[in-house]
């Protein structure tokens, strides 16, 4: 366990590193009043690709944490998608998918 001073310095270093990742793009492109075209293009298409990545990332974690060969995740994801295509109501789709996942883990696939 570190001393309080050492702990504060360590936390400050973590804050510094984290903030660097947040501020750097804005600092680099601060002087360019018009963002370069290729960066502008990336700004338009990259987020769609990143959102797909976040889906993979968040599902990967739940599969690993539960360890039921992914059945609860496949079922809950299907419920979320079908309900959303049908009703197009974000809160409803998210709530239904999550409750399905909780019920499956706690009652059907409980160990």
């Amino acid at each position: 366990m570190l001393s309080t001073d050492e702990a504060i310095i360590t936390i400050a270093a973590v804050i510094g590193g984290t903030m660097l990742t947040r501020f750097l793009p804005f600092v680099i492109f601060y002087r360019n009043r018009t963002t370069p075209l290729s960066i502008k293009y990336l700004g338009n298409v990259l987020p769609t690709a990143i959102i797909a990545l976040l889906v993979v990332y968040s599902l990967k974690d739940t599969v690993i944490l539960s360890g039921n060969h992914g059945f609860p995740e496949v079922i809950s994801t299907t419920v979320t998608i079908l309900l959303h295509v049908w009703k197009r109501n974000m809160l409803l789709s998210i709530a239904a998918g999550t409750i399905t996942h909780m019920l499956l883990l706690q009652y059907i696939f409980s160990s």
């Binding site: 599902l59 998918g97 909780m102």
Partner: peptide
């Protein structure tokens, strides 16, 4: 248990 799916569901719906 299982509530952690909510952020996955958020990203799925937005995608």
């Amino acid at each position: 248990q299982g509530l952690d799916f909510i952020l996955a569901a958020l990203f799925i719906v937005i995608m």
